[in-house]
């Protein structure tokens, strides 16, 4: 393999604070592919919670900070579809009246990829030598599947994982009801939505549900555990970095 550009990790805030092992799994993956990795210090949050709440002035500040932190990054990889969607599609909107910043935002957006998208579409890799012996179902998160059009890539990667039996759920791209602050402002609706998602997950008989967005997975996990349901969540990066027979997901 020719020398690939250094990958700058854009670690979603929820991964940083609550699911750090997902970030570590990503690092393992790139180490295995012999691709240099860096983590630009000073990164915080892409601004999506503010943007989706209508507070675009605050979101703009977060975007400015992001542009500053990742200014010199060649390739920016994130384990979250919705954060990539934010950078790629919403940042230019935030700077629509500021041509210089808009151009900068567009350029950074062009260099920002979701993990599975980068692996499959750019690196052309599907087999990462992973093994994960479990029945698993896959949730198509909204911004990932609809806005970024990423459905094929994660499935291509999962299909090469030894021992993994992928069982598709019904309506795999129906929203899990997280929606950021929506889940706090409208908890009853949000919970009804995740219960419907769990109904389709449980119907597959899978032991694990995976996906490319930890926020959806956090929502599904939080509800499943509250209800003591027999399904666990695992981010796709964890599956792809996992090798060996037993002890599936990397727990904290």
């Amino acid at each position: 393999m020719t020398q690939q550009p250094t990958v700058s990790l854009f670690i979603q805030c929820l991964v940083d604070h609550m699911y750090p092992h997902v970030g570590e799994a990503m690092v393992n993956l790139f180490d295995r592919l012999d691709i240099p990795v860096t983590y630009p210090d000073g990164q915080t949050c892409c601004g999506q919670p503010a943007f989706n709440s209508g507070h675009r002035q605050s979101a703009r500040k977060a975007a400015l900070h992001f542009l500053q932190v990742f200014r010199d990054s060649e390739v920016i990889i994130c384990p979250s579809g919705s954060c990539v969607h934010m950078v790629r599609h919403h940042y230019p909107q935030l700077f629509k009246d500021e041509p210089d910043l808009m151009q900068m935002a567009e350029r950074i957006g062009d260099r920002t990829y979701e993990l599975t998208e980068y692996l499959v579409d750019v690196l052309g890799v599907t087999d990462l030598g992973a093994s994960f012996h479990a029945k698993t179902t896959y949730h198509d998160s909204c911004h990932l599947s609809r806005s970024l059009g990423i459905r094929r890539q994660p499935r291509a990667l999962l299909s090469k994982v030894a021992g993994l039996e992928l069982i598709e759920m019904e309506n795999s791209d129906t929203c899990c009801g997280f929606g950021g602050t929506f889940s706090i402002h409208y908890p009853e609706i949000s919970t009804a939505m995740v219960d419907e998602k769990l109904r389709t997950i449980l119907a597959t008989g899978a032991e694990y549900v995976t996906g490319c967005d930890i926020s959806c997975l956090m929502h599904i996990q939080g509800r499943a555990q509250k209800r003591n349901l027999p399904v666990q969540v695992v981010h796709i990066a964890e599956i792809l970095s996992h090798q060996g027979e037993a002890d599936h997901a990397g727990n904290k």
Binding site: I11, V15, D16, H17, M18, Y19, P20, V22, G23, E24, V27, Y39, D41, S183, I184, H185, P187, T191, V194, M218, H219, Q221, G222, R223, Q225, K226, K252
Partner: peptide, 23 residues
């Protein structure tokens, strides 16, 4: 306000070591 989440869902705790620290 966090009760609006935890009334129907559990929330993962903040990790002992964030990714940033691990890095």
């Amino acid at each position: 306000p966090a009760s609006k989440w935890t009334r129907t869902r559990l929330l993962p705790a903040v990790a002992q070591k964030t990714f940033r620290k691990r890095w």
